[in-house]
Amino acid sequence: MKIGLLQCDDVAPALIGPHGNYPDMIQTLLRAVDPDTQFQVFACHQGQLPDHTANVDGWVTTGSKCGANDDADWIARVSDFIRVLWQTRQPLVGICFGHQMIAKALGGRVERAALGWGLGAYQTTLEQQEPWMTPWHSQELQLLASHQDQVVELPPQGRVLAGSGFCPIYMMQVGDTCLGIQGHPEFSRAYLEDLLDTRRDRITPERLLAARHSLRGSTDDLLVGRWILNFIRSVQRQRAD
């Protein structure tokens, strides 16, 4: 399988050395599931948008410090590209910012979370089981997270796959070809710890302490990495039929 990575930001320079950049993290996650997975990276935040006919099996978008509602030319171009992928029925998986971009580009709504930052490892409930969600081990899902915005209204043909009281639209599927995940299965605990340190001036001490405490628990990063590849393969099978 070959994945087109839509890179929407860079890791802070001080953190790239120990943790790598966003595409590195996603490649590490998905290769831990399938070592033969190949990647082509497109630096969308620097104006490098691919052609939708690129020779890839599916697309994955990274997170970003930007917001889906920001007024930037490259964000508008990514939105246009998402709509082309939707129209041509190509598999697309959005992570955090990418999840929000899918929702907004296809007619949903994204807003700043009323309850503040979503930080650390927090648990959500899977509301339905899709065929590509294998293996299946629990109704609960826990991933690392770092976000202020979230999807508050699904696009047409969207449905909620997982949610919580804090983030009701935590995971969604739009039609048969788009999957959005608010959490970060590609993040390591060490990276999120260091990221929290860089945001001490923007986050209350109480929220930081709670986020750090949550990192002691287990997460379902490899499970979700497998689901991402399963989802892309399932779309490809449908297109071949």
Rank of each mutant, 00 (worst) to 15 (best):
Q142N: 11
D197S: 10
N55E: 15
G94I: 14
V224P: 02
C44P: 03
W117F: 07
A76F: 13
D73Q: 10
S64A: 14
P35K: 08
D220P: 09
R202P: 01
V160H: 00
L179S: 03
T134F: 07
P155G: 01
D220I: 11
I3A: 06
L143Y: 08
C44V: 15
V174A: 02
Q148K: 11
C66L: 05
W117N: 04
H99C: 03
H184L: 08
W132H: 06
R77E: 10
T204Q: 06
S146M: 13
V93T: 00
A105E: 00
A54W: 06
R31P: 00
R189G: 14
G63L: 06
A72G: 03
D176V: 08
D24V: 06
D149Y: 04
Y170L: 06
S188E: 13
Q128N: 14
G120L: 04
R216V: 12
L208E: 09
V41L: 05
H137S: 15
I75E: 02
A190S: 13
I82D: 00
A105Q: 01
R207S: 10
H52G: 14
N230Y: 11
L154D: 09
R237C: 09
T177N: 09
R226K: 13
Q90S: 07
D220W: 02
G47D: 10
D221K: 13
R189D: 13
L92A: 05
L85P: 09
L141I: 14
S188A: 12
R31G: 05
L115D: 10
S146F: 15
E153V: 11
V11P: 06
R77K: 15
I169M: 11
D176F: 03
G4W: 04
A210E: 15
L196N: 05
Q238V: 07
I169A: 03
I82R: 08
W227Y: 05
D221V: 03
L222G: 03
S79C: 14
A210W: 05
A113W: 02
D220V: 11
D71A: 12
A240T: 10
Q128T: 14
T28H: 11
H137C: 13
V151M: 07
E140N: 10
A105N: 02
R233E: 15
R239L: 12
Q100Y: 01
Q46Y: 11
V235Y: 08
G4R: 04
Q7P: 06
R212A: 07
E111I: 01
Q40N: 04
R83C: 15
S64R: 04
H45P: 00
C96E: 09
I16N: 09
R233Y: 06
S164T: 05
L49G: 00
G175I: 04
V160F: 01
P155E: 01
R109T: 02
G217L: 12
D71M: 10
V160E: 02
T88F: 04
H184E: 06
V11D: 05
A14D: 12
V93W: 00
D176A: 14
A105Y: 01
L92H: 06
V151F: 08
W59E: 03
P35V: 12
L115P: 00
W227V: 01
Q148M: 15
G98E: 05
W136K: 06
A211S: 13
Y191W: 11
D70R: 05
G225P: 03
R239Q: 15
L49T: 02
L5P: 12
V56S: 00
Q182C: 02
K65Q: 08
F42H: 03
R109K: 08
D194E: 15
A114G: 07
H52K: 10
